[in-house]
Simulated assay, not measured.
Amino acid sequence: MAISEFEIKRYKKIVNHYIESHRPEPHIRNQVDLSFRIENQSVIIFEIREVWNQPGKKMESPIAKATYVKKTNSWKLYWQRADLKWHRYEPTPEVKTIEVFLAVLEKDEYGCFWG
């Protein structure tokens, strides 16, 4: 595994802080919310919504993914298109830190992440 347990804890803390500052108001979180997970070397940020006309059933819609590449000590950035495949984020395809990934996500220069 390319990311150590110490680094995973650090990344969780940083990303969790970002997510908490961008979550919707508490009274609508049962309808729409924001979360993340770490899978292998990737941090995936996604939206959680109720499935239309299926109350109580939730679905996740991916927003962004950053994958750590140990060889280059950098993060590759991705967004998910309508074809449901991850595509490199061309304005900024690679960054050096998870903090810069979150800054790119926040800026969303081409409207790929937040629309």
Score class of each variant (00 low, 15 high):
K13G: 03
I44D: 03
E94G: 10
I14K: 13
V104K: 05
F113G: 04
M59S: 15
E5T: 15
E20Q: 07
K58N: 06
Y89D: 11
E5L: 10
S61T: 13
G115A: 06
I19Q: 08
E7C: 02
H17V: 13
N53G: 09
W86L: 13
W79T: 15
E60P: 01
H27C: 14
V95L: 07
T72Q: 07
N16W: 00
K96P: 00
E47I: 07
A66P: 01
R81D: 14
K70I: 11
S61W: 00
T92D: 04
A103S: 14
V43R: 12
P26C: 14
Q54P: 03
V15W: 05
H17E: 15
K71W: 03
D83W: 00
A103F: 13
H27R: 04
K58A: 09
I48G: 07
G115V: 04
S61H: 03
Q80G: 07
H27T: 12
P62L: 11
T72K: 12
E39P: 00
N73S: 12
Y89N: 12
Y110L: 14
K12N: 11
S35A: 14
K96V: 03
N30E: 07
E109M: 12
P62R: 02
E106I: 09
E99F: 05
E60H: 05
K85Y: 06
N53V: 13
S42A: 14
I8H: 01
L102F: 11
W75G: 03
N53I: 12
I8N: 03
W114D: 02
N73L: 09
V32M: 11
Y78R: 01
E106T: 15
E7Y: 02
G115Q: 02
M1D: 04
E109C: 08
K96S: 05
N73D: 13
P62W: 01
R10C: 04
N40S: 13
H17P: 01
V69W: 05
R10Q: 09
E99D: 11
K85G: 02
A82P: 00
F46K: 01
Y89Q: 09
H27F: 06
P24H: 12
A82Q: 02
W52S: 15
R10E: 09
V95A: 10
Y89G: 14
W114Q: 05
T72H: 11
I8D: 01
P24C: 10
K76C: 10
A66D: 05
Y11L: 05
E50G: 12
K65R: 15
G115Y: 00
E25H: 12
I38A: 04
P55G: 04
H22Q: 12
P93Q: 08
I8Y: 01
V51F: 00
I19E: 06
A64K: 02
T72M: 04
M1P: 02
E7K: 07
Q54S: 15
L34T: 08
L34A: 09
Q80R: 07
G111N: 02
D33P: 06
Y18N: 08
E20S: 14
S42Q: 01
